[in-house]
């Protein structure tokens, strides 16, 4: 799988509301497996190199899977016991399937680990992404884009509909019944 827009490690990412250093290495399907370190691989590689990658985890290195927007939450759920991290690779920011995938992974399949987004990540999308349960963001491009993403996490202090961060507004607090006008 080509990795056109992925940032290379070491990189700074937005994670759990902070800008932090990150050393996960994105591996293409033909890249050699490094001796040590945390690696992110495609679903195909995770399955074809299952034993080797499991052994790697046994040796204390972490393994993550990088899904595409073609992969459903159900597909992802079947891989959860093999990985320490799930990354959703977004080829084009307008391909919004991953919002549903992220949300279902959290809500329906109970995934608790790091849920990362990478690829064509636009800073202004992270508010929505975060509400759908994504907690780590690889933002390509200059540093100001990462800073814009950090700021965008706090764009709105309230939301109407329920998501990962809160229930629907109408179930959270009594809202006043305004007089008819």
């Amino acid at each position: 799988m080509p990795l056109p827009k992925l940032t290379s490690a070491p990189r700074t990412i937005l994670k759990s509301g902070k800008l932090v250093a990150d050393a996960w290495v994105h591996l293409g399907d033909d890249d050699a497996l490094p001796a040590t370190g945390d690696v992110l691989v495609s679903r195909e590689r995770l399955l074809t190199q299952a034993e080797e990658l499991a052994a790697r985890r046994g040796a204390g290195h972490r393994v993550g899977v990088r899904l595409t927007t073609e992969d459903s939450a159900q597909t992802a759920a079947e891989l959860l016991d093999r990985v320490d991290l799930v990354a959703l690779y977004v080829p084009k920011f307008a391909d919004g399937r991953f919002f549903t995938t992220a949300r279902l992974l959290r809500e329906r399949h109970g995934y608790q680990g790091e849920l990362r987004v990478c690829g064509d990540v636009v800073p202004d999308q992270v508010f929505y992404m975060h509400r759908c349960g994504i907690d780590a963001f690889e933002v390509p491009g200059p540093r100001y884009r990462l800073e814009a993403a950090l700021k965008a996490l706090g764009t709105f202090s309230e939301s109407y509909q329920g998501a990962l961060d809160s229930g629907p507004r109408y179930r959270r607090a009594r809202r006043s019944i305004a007089r008819a006008s």
Partner: peptide, 14 residues
Amino acid sequence: RQWSTFHPEFAFLP
């Protein structure tokens, strides 16, 4: 309207 306003899952539909 309220439910759909900034619905995080459905802002980038087909």
